[in-house]
């Protein structure tokens, strides 16, 4: 089931530094949203707030109409119980810039561990699903390799398979190709394109303008902790309205 993600006046401060200064935005089911912007603009922080890896200071993020880290009690928000947060997180897949595959597990074990330990899927069934997922990302023959024996592109594809193993409603990508050698970027983007075509709701923080143009339904440009501009890829990337967007795009293109 594809999810809706709503950002309602999201604020986030690290100490005295306000990184997010009121973000309002809605991601519709099966939409692919690419978030672009200069480093320090708050785009990664925004993504990490969605699954409560970072704690929002105020405002709310709703995934399928429910908050991940908070509950409403009376007229204010209270932190949700840990176990409840864990349960809600399981439905949100996340892919990191540095892959973060579990180093002591093979590719297959990485893709099996979530279903086996968290969803209590029987091992045989979990292995079957895991092999299917690895085949889907083109790595059926790498099931028994440890992450250290895989290239960056292969590791990232395993990481995508691992996130998918939890059958998430939405996938978050935090600069998934930024740590890759240029010739390995394509294989990861191909997997992401396939995922988008299959109807997954995706929020992608990226510097890959080509990918954004081709795959995104909406491109969001962030700077200084706010959304400066949003719209169709062609509108934002080719006909930007704001000066800040124009100067950013001039630097990356």
């Amino acid at each position: 089931m594809a999810a809706t993600v709503e950002f309602l006046n999201v604020h986030k401060s690290f100490g005295h530094v306000e990184v997010l200064k009121g973000v309002d935005f809605v991601v519709e089911p099966s939409q692919v949203v690419c978030v672009i912007g200069p480093s320090g603009s708050g785009k990664s922080t925004l993504l990490r707030c969605v699954n409560h890896l970072e704690v929002t200071t105020s405002g709310a993020i709703l995934v399928n109409g429910a908050m991940v880290g908070y509950d409403v009690r009376g007229d204010r928000l209270v932190e949700a119980p840990e176990a409840e947060i864990d349960r809600r997180r399981a439905k949100i897949g996340m892919v990191f810039q540095s892959f973060n595959l579990f180093g002591h597990m093979t590719a297959l074990e990485n893709v099996m561990v979530g279903p086996v330990k968290l969803l209590k899927t029987p091992k045989a069934e979990a292995e079957k699903q895991a092999r299917e997922l690895l085949a889907r990302v083109g790595l059926a023959d790498r099931a028994d390799n440890y992450p250290s024996q895989l290239s960056g592109g292969q590791q990232q594809r395993v990481a995508i398979a691992r996130a998918l193993s939890m059958k998430p409603d939405v996938m978050l990508f935090d600069e998934p190709t930024s740590a890759l050698d240029p010739e390995l970027v394509g294989e990861v983007l191909d997997v992401m394109k396939q995922l988008a075509a299959d109807g997954m709701t995706m929020i992608v923080v990226t510097h890959e303008m080509g990918f954004a143009r081709e795959v995104a339904d909406v491109v969001v440009f962030m700077d200084g902790g706010v959304i400066v501009e949003q719209g169709s890829p062609d509108d934002v990337l080719l006909r930007p309205q704001h000066e800040r967007t124009r100067s950013f795009l001039a630097k990356v293109f």
Partner: peptide, 24 residues
């Protein structure tokens, strides 16, 4: 990042320690 990936999947702090951090 190992802890973050594990927590993001829905593992609790204790399960993360047991299945991800301690073995490594």
């Amino acid at each position: 990042g190992q802890t973050e990936a594990s927590r993001a999947m829905g593992f609790s702090g204790l399960a993360t320690l047991r299945h991800v951090v301690v073995p490594q």
